[in-house]
Design a protein around this nucleic acid. Structure first.
Lengths: 203, 203
DNA sequence: GTCTATAAATTGATAGAC
DNA sequence: GTCTATCAATTTATAGAC
């Protein structure tokens, strides 16, 4: 019975290998030969599971998307207060601080690179979904906290922009300290924002 | 006398062409053939001016660096108040809003891509200098405003992270409106931050 | 200094045996 | 389903005529 199961395991292993390499080296620099080697699968076999390199990258993004949604759902399950949930988002990069400092945000950097393929490229659209997941979930939490619809959207964008920008800078400077300290500042901003009595956009 | 001048003009033209293509397509996807075509220079001639593709990219980054410093200097010359100067930084993306929405930040996206070459790659280090120029200049302005040394560094990082994150999201979403509105919010944050009576880090 | 032709290496993708 | 061998295209870089 190994046969039937090995195929889905190999597929999964290919996606895992590709996911890591896309984070470490980016899409363009990652070759299918390298992915195959890391997954311990012969090069030619890759094409049995994925018709093209793009298809493999899309599978990686889909896996990221699923993983993100599960992670977000776990925060919702763990905390009743939206403020606590959003804090999880801000602190999340610290859980993989080493990777973030060394390679940047696995979603943000991938998204930025894939956008260079052109606005109408399927992969670019797939990458954009990753950022959308971040923003939409954050928006939901601000709504749940009691913020207005437009304000929630704007706050969510503020938050994701701050976290993404922080990861970009901390990665570029290769600084754990910068990542930690700046994320703490984002968290403070978040606390102050959610504490102020129902911000009415027109202050 | 054309001879002597044409050579430096061609060099400049190659850098200009490469600069545009690096912004539009990224480093990896930009071929020297494409650069040569846009600069209206035969492919083989590129190597007379630049030993390698990397050398051309470094010239582009150096040009960006020079341009940034000149731009920042012009803001210093135009405004006596650091607050006004920093406002220029926040509003700058609006001057080329179309390009930013379509291709992202020419410095941030390049920096992010080049980091994938590895921490010790010369091009990665060159790209990192671009972000450093932003942060250091901003830091100087916060200092001039009267903020403490550590606080200025942190505020500068906050600011650049917010602007970079905003450009990433606005580009990904291809939204002029998002770019405009979120930058306005960053500006409001900047105003509030600089208005509060000398933030003492320990609030 | 300028340009054409081409070498050399890489890499996405396929053919076809097993 | 699995794997080897290889094609075909791309692209950096060079050789060498002018």
């Amino acid at each position: 019975m190994p046969g039937a199961y090995e195929s889905i395991e190999k597929r999964t292993e290919l996606v895992r290998a590709a996911s890591g390499l896309l984070h470490e080296q980016g899409f363009q620099r990652t070759t299918l030969a390298h992915v195959a080697a890391r997954a311990e699968v012969p090069l030619g076999n890759v094409y049995y599971y994925f018709k093209t390199k793009d298809a493999l990258a899309e599978a990686v993004i889909t896996a990221h998307e699923t993983g993100l949604r599960e992670l977000f759902a776990s925060w919702v399950a763990a905390h009743r207060e939206p403020r606590q949930r959003l804090r999880c988002l801000v602190r999340a990069p610290l859980d993989s601080a080493d990777h973030v400092v060394q390679f940047g945000c696995p979603h943000g950097s991938l998204c930025q690179e894939l956008e260079k393929l052109g606005a109408d490229a399927p992969l670019a659209k797939a990458g954009a979904r990753l950022l959308a997941v971040y923003i939409e979930w954050s928006e939901d939490q601000f709504r749940a906290h009691g913020c207005g619809k437009r304000e929630s959207r704007a706050l969510a964008t503020d938050l994701v922009a701050a976290v993404q920008g922080t990861m970009l800078i901390a990665h570029t400077m290769r600084s754990h300290e910068l990542l930690t300290q700046q994320l703490r500042r984002v968290e403070r901003w978040l606390d102050e924002t959610l504490s102020s009595p129902r911000p009415r956009s027109r202050s």
